[in-house]
Design a protein around this nucleic acid. Structure first.
Lengths: 217, 217
DNA sequence: TTTAAATAGAAGTATTACTATTATAAAAAA
DNA sequence: TTTTTTATAATAGTAATACTTCTATTTAAA
C-alpha cells in the first residue's frame, strides 16, 4: 500500500486493522457522507484522536480502501487466471470477478470483502472525482486501479492486437461492472436486470459488449 | 423541474437565477466538496440564509443541477434528431452530444452549458451515489436522467429490435461518455485519448463499442 | 525491569450546515 | 398614491463536523 495514504500503517497494529474492518462496515451501513471518524471511534471503542493517528481524514481513508480493493481484486485475478492461457477465458474470468459480490476471503481477517464490494460500487468513484485528482494521482494513490486496467488492457491486446482502444475498454469494463451493479440495486429502470437475476446478467451484458467490439476490429 | 428539489423556484426570480448561474461556476471552480452556501452567497453578493430559502441543502442543489442538465441534453437531442429518420445517425448524434463539451446555449442566460458539462462529468454521479437514492428516486428526482436513457434505449431498439440489453447499454453510453471525458482530462492512463485529441476520440470509441454489439445481435 | 511507544480520555478550536430574527427595499394590490 | 405583501440583506446564533492538543495509562520491546 502507498505510504502517502496513511500516517501510521493500519495493517501493522490491532487498532489499525480494526479501523479498516469497521470503516468498511460503517461506510456500508451509513454511506460515505454520513460516515465520520467520531462514529467510527465509537463503533470501534476507541477515540477520534486515535483514528487521526492513522489517517489524515476520511477521504484519505476512502482512497486507501479503494486502493486496497483494487490491489486485492488484481491479486485475485492474477491468482485465478494464473494457469489460463486463452485470453478469451481470462477476460471472462475478469468480468465475472468484477461484477459479482465477492465471498469473504478468509486470508484477510481484517476486511470483509463481501461488504467491501458494495462499498466500492457505491463510493469508489468518489475517491477520484475530486479537485485533488491530479495531485493525488501524482502521489500514485490510484496505482492499483491503473495497474488493474493495464492488466485488463493487455489481455484485450492479447486477444486482438489490432483493437484500437484497449485502455478505454479496460476502464469501461471496471466502471460498468460497478455502475450496472449499483443501478440494478438502486435505479433499476437504468438496467435490464432485476435484483433476483443477480450479477450473472451483468456478466452476460459485459461479455456481449466486450467481445462484440474486440472480435470485430 | 421537479418541485421537490427546491423550496422556492429558482427560475422565477433574479436571485434564484443567480444562484443557479453562480453555483455552476463555483462548483466548477472549487469542486462540490469545497463548495458551500456561504461561499456561494459571497460570490453572488447575497447571504447564506437567502440561498437556504431556495434550496434545502447543497446536495439538493446538485441534484437540481444534474436534473437540469439531463433535461436540457434531452431537449437538445430531441431538437437535433428531430428530422433524422435513420436510427444509426440518431445514435451517432446522441453519442456526440453526450461526449463533447457544449457551447453555451444563448437561450438559457442563467446557466453556462460550457461549464455545466465538466461539472456534470466530475460531480454528476454524486447526485445518486448516496444512501438516499431510493428515497430520492421515489420522489422522481432522477426522472430526466431516466427519461434520457429510455429515449436512447428506444433508439437502440429501433436500430435493432433483437438487442437484449437496451437499457443497460443506454446508461452505459451516458456514463462512459462522461467517465472517459474525466479520465482523459485527469487520469489519462485510463484512456487511449490525449487532451489534444479532444472528444472526437471518445465519440469514435463509443460508436465502435455500441455499434459492434447492436450490429451483431 | 526499564524504557519507549501506542492508546484512551478529555478538552478545545475552526469550520460547516443550518435556523431564526429583524430591518429594509421592492413589487403588487387597494 | 398609499397600503400591504413579499423578497431580500444583515446579523446573530446553534449544532454538528473536522481536526488538534495534552495528559495519564497501558502495552510491548530492549
Amino acid at each position: 500500500m502507498n505510504e502517502g495514504l496513511y500516517l501510521r500503517n493500519p495493517e501493522d497494529t490491532a487498532l489499525g486493522r480494526k479501523i479498516l474492518k469497521h470503516s468498511v462496515e460503517l461506510i456500508y451501513k451509513l454511506g460515505f457522507e454520513a460516515f465520520n471518524f467520531k462514529k467510527l471511534a465509537e463503533d470501534i471503542g476507541s477515540t477520534e484522536a486515535g483514528i487521526y493517528r492513522y489517517f489524515e481524514n476520511k477521504h484519505k481513508l476512502l482512497i486507501y480502501i479503494t486502493a486496497w480493493y483494487f490491489g486485492w481484486i488484481g491479486f485475485q485475478i492474477g491468482f485465478q487466471t494464473n494457469n489460463i492461457e486463452i485470453p478469451k477465458v481470462k477476460l471472462h474470468k475478469i468480468i465475472s470477478l468484477l461484477s459479482s459480490p465477492i465471498e469473504d476471503d478468509k486470508q484477510t481477517s481484517y476486511i470483509d470483502e463481501s461488504l467491501l464490494h458494495p462499498v466500492i460500487v457505491a463510493e469508489g468513484s468518489k475517491a477520484y472525482l475530486t479537485k485533488q485528482v491530479e495531485e493525488n494521482n501524482k502521489l500514485q494513490f490510484f496505482q492499483p486501479y491503473k495497474d488493474l486496467c493495464t492488466l485488463i488492457g493487455n489481455v484485450i491486446l492479447e486477444y486482438n492486437p489490432n483493437y484500437k482502444f484497449p485502455k478505454s475498454l479496460a476502464s469501461t469494463i471496471v466502471e460498468i461492472a460497478h455502475f450496472q451493479n449499483f443501478f440494478m440495486h438502486n435505479l433499476s429502470s437504468l438496467t435490464d436486470f432485476s435484483k433476483k437475476d443477480k450479477e450473472t446478467e451483468i456478466v452476460e451484458f459485459l461479455n456481449d459488449l466486450v467481445f462484440s467490439s474486440i472480435d470485430k476490429s
